[in-house]
Design a protein around this nucleic acid. Structure first.
Lengths: 226, 226
DNA sequence: ACCTGAACACCGTTCAAGT
DNA sequence: ACCTGAACACCGTTCAAGT
């Protein structure tokens, strides 16, 4: 029959070989950045690509394998500073900062990267560089590993935190004002610091990078022991 | 007809008022701790409670409202040290540590707590206490707020990281050995630090609390500037 | 008021079929 | 080999109905 389907899309059979892993990954990243993790659906992805839902399965075993590949591709974007000179502390800060930038630019990458083990070459290169820098900053073997993990933990946490408060600011209007109102309405006897610092607290929402720099700087200082 | 259903459960109509918000929350936490976030389903929850799927909807508007309530209940478990004396740095460490413990004991709470804005009185009390301690440690108004956020970010990140690697250790056998093998197999010329520190790196998986203490100690030191 | 099942619009994925 | 639609077992939720 030629009766039109419920209008989903007037797509006819697409020429063969229009799809390949790269095109799929591009579309996946686009979809993820534009609509977020919960909209990252095999069906939505196929729609984005203008193909049938099952077409993607010819190139990836399933959503899990696809998600792994997306994480890989995003990690490959992290640019490592090649400059071999300079204060180790500064260079550490640089590498970690570029990781944080990745998470900020691709908020949904975060969930992908934190919800699955970090395999892959890109991750390996970053790790090796950081460990080397920490060692050359004078840390012992175990200490360097601990410091590396602490840096990763802080970065992931900062990114999760930032992403969440940014999402909130986008969704609701005038969040800062509302927070301030709620804080100043609290009983000062029970919550003296909270009411006192209401102005500073309500401003914290939209200062992701500044906040990250602050914490990272202090953490590096604490880790390197000066 | 009296033909048995496909055996889902031989449940008959349950007496009224067997359900209440508290019982539901208990079951939700149990389910979450036992089977994880992805198994936390309205249908599974109903099964756990021995009621029909829709029974829960008489007490919560939907899964979102229920999830909020679960997050609330878990936060209420955080015990705040009431001791009003002692080094501010130590007391800060104590509060943050108890937050981390909450996340460790209820891994799935983490996703709940990070995926939605922290509203609720429990969160407020923790925040006020930390801000007060940071101020009494000599930090300025803005600095105290920044330090508070940095501490939260580190805690969330550490919890996410720990949870993930623990899940991985549970799922797969002998992860440490496998990681070590993979690391020592890498070309030492390209990744000198990684291959050199293979023993320390492969041991990092199962030392959550120790690692957390290390990073937290250094972060606090950096934040308080000594 | 509280609990029920059927039904709806989603999801990932299997499978047999088209080209 | 690559792409297709139908179908299956899930999901959250609406709705009319039972008690």
């Amino acid at each position: 029959m030629t009766t039109a389907r419920p209008a989903r899309s007037p797509r006819r059979r697409v020429p063969r070989n229009t799809l390949n892993p790269d095109r799929i990954l591009d579309a996946a990243v686009t979809l993820l950045d534009r609509d977020g993790t919960e909209a990252f659906t095999m069906r939505a992805l196929a729609e984005e690509l203008g193909v049938g839902t099952m077409a993607v399965y010819s190139h990836f075993r399933g959503k899990d394998e696809l998600s792994d590949a997306v994480a890989q591709r995003l990690l490959a974007e992290v640019e490592l500073p090649v400059t071999g000179v300079g204060d180790p502390g500064d260079r550490i800060t640089e590498v970690v900062r570029s990781l944080y930038r990745l998470f900020s630019e691709h908020p949904s990458a975060l969930q992908l990267l934190t919800s699955r083990p970090m395999r892959g070459d890109e991750q390996i290169a970053v790790t090796d560089q950081l460990l080397g820098l920490l060692r050359s900053a004078g840390l012992g073997r175990t200490e360097a590993v601990r410091a590396y993990v602490a840096l990763m933990q802080y970065t992931v946490g900062a990114a999760v935190w930032t992403t969440r408060s940014r999402r909130r600011c986008e969704r609701e209007e005038g969040v800062g004002e509302r927070i301030k109102k709620r804080l100043t309405a609290l009983p000062p006897d029970s919550y003296p610091s909270l009411t006192d610092l209401a102005p500073e607290l309500s401003a914290v929402g939209n200062m992701g990078p500044v906040q990250f720099e602050y914490g990272l700087g202090r953490l590096v200082r604490g880790l390197l022991g000066r």
